[in-house]
Simulated assay, not measured.
Amino acid sequence: MILATTKFEDLDRFLKVFSTKGAAKRREHGSKGATVFRDPIDEDRVWVVFDWDAEGWQDFVSDPDVPGIFQEAGHVVKPQPAPLVGQYDA
C-alpha cells in the first residue's frame, strides 16, 4: 500500500485524467487500484491510497510518459508518497 499526496489546479480535470490515462499507466506498473480523498483543510490537495508496492510506484514515477500525464491532469506539485512509520493491530 502507498499513501501519496498532490496538489492540482482543478479537481474535475485531475479526476478525469487520474481515472483514465493515469489509471492505464498505473496499471502498467502493477497498481491494483486507488482510493482518492480530498484534503479537508486544503481543497486543492488530494490524498490517494494505492493498492501498490514500492517497486511499482518507483517504476511508475520513473516512466518517461508520466510527467506529461501529470501536466495534463493539472498537478501543481509532483505527487509525494507519505513515509510509513508503523503498522498496528486494531
Score class of each variant (00 low, 15 high):
residue 35 T to C: 03
residue 32 K to H: 14
residue 33 G to D: 14
residue 62 S to W: 00
residue 48 V to Q: 07
residue 25 K to E: 14
residue 40 P to N: 12
residue 41 I to G: 08
residue 52 W to I: 04
residue 13 R to F: 03
residue 43 E to C: 04
residue 66 V to Q: 14
residue 43 E to H: 08
residue 52 W to K: 02
residue 19 S to M: 11
residue 25 K to Q: 13
residue 45 R to H: 09
residue 47 W to S: 15
residue 15 L to P: 01
residue 71 Q to C: 02
residue 10 D to C: 09
residue 29 H to I: 09
residue 28 E to D: 15
residue 19 S to D: 15
residue 46 V to Y: 00
residue 12 D to N: 14
residue 67 P to M: 03
residue 53 D to T: 04
residue 52 W to N: 03
residue 45 R to D: 07
residue 72 E to C: 06
residue 44 D to A: 12
residue 69 I to H: 01
residue 68 G to R: 05
residue 33 G to L: 13
residue 37 F to D: 08
residue 74 G to M: 10
residue 66 V to R: 10
residue 68 G to N: 08
residue 22 G to T: 04
residue 49 V to P: 00
residue 20 T to S: 08
residue 31 S to F: 05
residue 47 W to L: 15
residue 72 E to T: 12
residue 53 D to W: 01
residue 15 L to G: 02
residue 63 D to E: 10
residue 58 Q to R: 13
residue 18 F to R: 12
residue 46 V to D: 00
residue 72 E to L: 11
residue 74 G to L: 03
residue 50 F to V: 07
residue 16 K to Y: 00
residue 32 K to C: 13
residue 48 V to A: 14
residue 67 P to N: 05
residue 74 G to D: 04
residue 18 F to Q: 15
residue 72 E to H: 09
residue 17 V to Q: 02
residue 37 F to M: 12
residue 38 R to C: 09
residue 12 D to K: 12
residue 50 F to D: 02
residue 27 R to C: 05
residue 36 V to R: 05
residue 45 R to C: 12
residue 48 V to P: 00
residue 30 G to N: 04
residue 63 D to Y: 01
residue 34 A to M: 06
residue 67 P to I: 05
residue 74 G to Y: 00
residue 65 D to Y: 03
residue 46 V to N: 01
residue 44 D to I: 06
residue 14 F to A: 09
residue 32 K to G: 15
residue 45 R to L: 05
residue 62 S to G: 02
residue 48 V to Y: 02
residue 53 D to P: 01
residue 61 V to R: 04
residue 35 T to A: 06
residue 18 F to T: 12
residue 63 D to A: 05
residue 51 D to V: 11
residue 39 D to R: 07
residue 37 F to H: 14
residue 33 G to R: 12
residue 25 K to L: 15
residue 51 D to F: 03
residue 13 R to V: 13
